[in-house]
Design a binder for these strands. Structure first.
Lengths: 145, 145
DNA sequence: TTATATGCAAACGTTTTGCTAGATT
DNA sequence: AATCTAGCAAAACGTTTGCATATAA
C-alpha cells in the first residue's frame, strides 16, 4: 500500500493499511471522531481491524502532525484532521448532546490577543507556550428548547 | 455538622461531614485537585472516608456551583474552588509535569473579545453559550530545559 | 531479512454503580 | 420516621500493553 495524502509527507515508520484506512476516515469525514467511532466505520468494510490498532494509530498520526487531539466534555479523546490549508478554528460544544461545531469568527482579533498573551505569559511565568485551546460550552439549537 | 462557608448558600441535599471535609480541602488549598488527591488529603485525618464518596461529592459540589471542573492534559478530572470574589482567570498547563498555573493577564481585553464572540456565535449557530474555557499548553520553567 | 505493526486478550487507571448500614433532617 | 448519604466492593469505561503472528521496507 502506497497511497497517502495528496501533498508530500515524510512518515517515520511504515505506512500500513490500517494507518491509511484510519486517515481515510478523517479525509472522508471532516469532523471530530473518537477512537470507537473510527473503529466502527472501518469495521464495516474491514472486519479484521483491531481496536488497539486504531488507538495506536490515532496516537501515531497525532504525533506525525496529521491529526489534532482534543479532550472535550466527555471522557473520550477526539481527533480531527489537521489540514494546513484549513482556517484556524475553535469549537462550540453542546454540553447536552455533545455536538461540536467549528467556528472561525474573529480569528484575526483572537490570534492577536493570543499572541500578546503568549508573549506576556512566557515572560512572566517562564512558560514556553506551544498551543492554546479555546472552547465555548453551551447548548445547541436542538438542546436549548 | 453545621459549619458551611462564610457566606450564605442554599444547598439542595444534606450537608454532611464528608461534604464539608472535601470543601475544606479546597478552601485550605487553592489549587486544581483530582479526586485521588482530595481523597488522600482527607484520609490523613479521617481514614474512614471512601473514595466513591469523594467522587460523588466532587460532582455534587460542582453541580451546586461551589467547584469548577476541568479536564486538562491527563485522564483525571480536576476541580478548583469557585470563589465569586476571585478574579476571572485561565490556565497555563505544562504538558510534561502537569503543573497548572493560574493567570489573569489581559482579562479585560479577553472578556471583551469573548463577549463579542459569544454574541456572534449565539446568533450565527443558534448556540446558547454558557461559558468558555481557554488553556495554554506548553512547557513550564522546570520542564523546558 | 529484519524491524516494525497487527490483532487479540488481558491489564490498567479512573470513575460509576448496587447495596446495606448509617446519618441528617 | 422518612429519606438521603456513606462506605465498601464490584462493575464499567476508555485506553494501554504483552505477546505471537503478519507485514512493510
Amino acid at each position: 500500500m502506497r497511497r497517502r495524502r495528496g501533498r508530500a509527507f515524510k512518515c517515520i515508520g511504515r505506512w500500513t493499511v490500517p494507518r491509511q484506512l484510519i486517515l481515510d476516515v478523517f479525509i472522508n469525514n471532516r469532523g471530530h471522531l473518537a477512537a470507537e467511532e473510527v473503529f466502527m466505520r472501518i469495521k464495516r468494510n474491514n472486519p479484521g481491524i483491531g481496536l488497539a490498532t486504531v488507538y495506536r494509530n490515532l496516537e501515531f498520526l497525532h504525533r506525525q502532525g496529521l491529526l489534532n487531539r482534543f479532550k472535550f466534555h466527555t471522557d473520550r479523546a477526539h481527533y480531527e484532521l489537521n489540514d494546513d490549508d484549513r482556517e484556524h478554528h475553535h469549537h462550540l460544544i453542546c454540553r447536552k448532546c455533545g455536538k461540536v461545531i467549528d467556528y472561525s469568527e474573529f480569528v484575526e482579533r483572537e490570534l492577536k490577543l493570543m499572541k500578546d498573551l503568549e508573549k506576556e505569559l512566557s515572560h512572566k511565568h517562564g512558560f514556553r507556550i506551544e498551543r492554546h485551546d479555546l472552547n465555548f460550552i453551551g447548548l445547541c439549537t436542538d438542546c436549548k428548547v
